[in-house]
């Protein structure tokens, strides 16, 4: 299960300068087919483990608009195997320059074919939703389970925007992204140029928690099938004084100021000093 497609020093420099990095293919076609089947089951509300996800939008069965399911890995062992994949953890650790990576939460995504504006995901920075984290090293691994391109509404990032600081533009469900673009340009005084993350199935894009990103409508007849895996460095702590809407993850731990986000609700994907921390390391696909 372990792979050697780790980012080189050049790749790490690219990530540091641009706030994102696209991996080579990490999963083969056979694995992808299994992942897609389980993805479809979870979208349909069939939870293999009998444990529901943390939350989902909209309800099971409704695929008329973007489906977003948080902590889908609770519902399905195969999805857990993907979300907690040690290679993803190892790559994330290298890019973030940390010794260990934990899951913050996952987000199973389904963008329906011909979605119209309902498939738009407004420009946002993940950090805007995660102000309780005591560091800005969190990042997201976005796994393409099928070919993803501009036609079916791939994710787009603004290279270098992770150095703009926090913009207060946290509009995941904003559908008028053209108006948002103008506002961000006025705010930053920088040209707003996006880079589409075109990914063949099995590739993964990694982006910094301050990188501005979003996506446009799916104008194809193919659904966009993916999973976003939000990751934090091992040892990340809860910062109580953050002024922001509460995050559902805090209901899992009910942390106090200074508490670490640790324990089984924030499982380890990779830890340099403990190769056995992630059980999936030793399990064959």
């Amino acid at each position: 299960m372990e792979r050697n497609d780790l980012p080189s020093a050049k790749d790490i420099t690219f990530y540091q300068q641009n706030g994102y990095w696209l991996s080579p293919k990490l999963f083969d076609d056979k694995e992808l087919e299994v992942f897609r089947n389980h993805h479809a089951a979870v979208v349909a509300g069939q939870y293999e483990t009998k444990r529901p996800p943390l939350n989902r939008e909209p309800d099971a069965g409704d695929v008329s608009r973007l489906v977003q399911i948080n902590n889908a890995y609770w519902t399905d062992a195969t999805i857990a195997r993907l979300v907690l994949h040690p290679t993803i953890g190892k790559i994330a650790a290298r890019l973030a320059g940390v010794k260990g990576i934990r899951l913050w939460h996952d987000q199973l995504l389904y963008k329906p074919p011909q979605s119209g504006k309902a498939g738009n995901i407004g420009w946002h920075q993940d950090r805007g939703y995660w102000l309780w984290l005591d560091n800005e090293n969190a990042l997201t691994a976005w796994v393409a389970l099928d070919d993803v391109d501009e036609e079916n509404g791939c994710m787009e990032v603004v290279p270098g925007s992770h150095r703009w600081g926090l913009l207060g533009e946290d509009h995941f469900y904003q559908q008028d992204i053209e108006q948002q673009t103008k506002r961000i340009e006025e705010k930053t005084g920088q040209p707003f140029k996006t880079q589409p993350c075109v990914l063949p199935a099995g590739c993964v894009s990694f982006h910094h928690c301050l990188t501005v990103h979003g996506s446009r409508a799916n104008v194809s007849d193919r659904p966009r099938i993916s999973i976003a895996i939000h990751l934090i460095p091992d040892g990340t702590r809860y910062k109580a004084d953050a002024v922001s809407e509460d995050h559902t993850n805090n209901t899992l731990r009910q942390p106090n100021d200074g508490d670490t986000y640790a324990g089984p609700y924030f499982p380890v994907l990779f830890r340099e000093d403990d190769p056995n921390a992630n059980i999936w390391m030793s399990v064959k696909s």
């Binding site: 609770w74 934990r102 089984p264 499982p267 059980i279």
Partner: peptide, 8 residues
Amino acid sequence: LYFGTGSD
């Protein structure tokens, strides 16, 4: 099995 993890 519940948490899907071997850590912690």
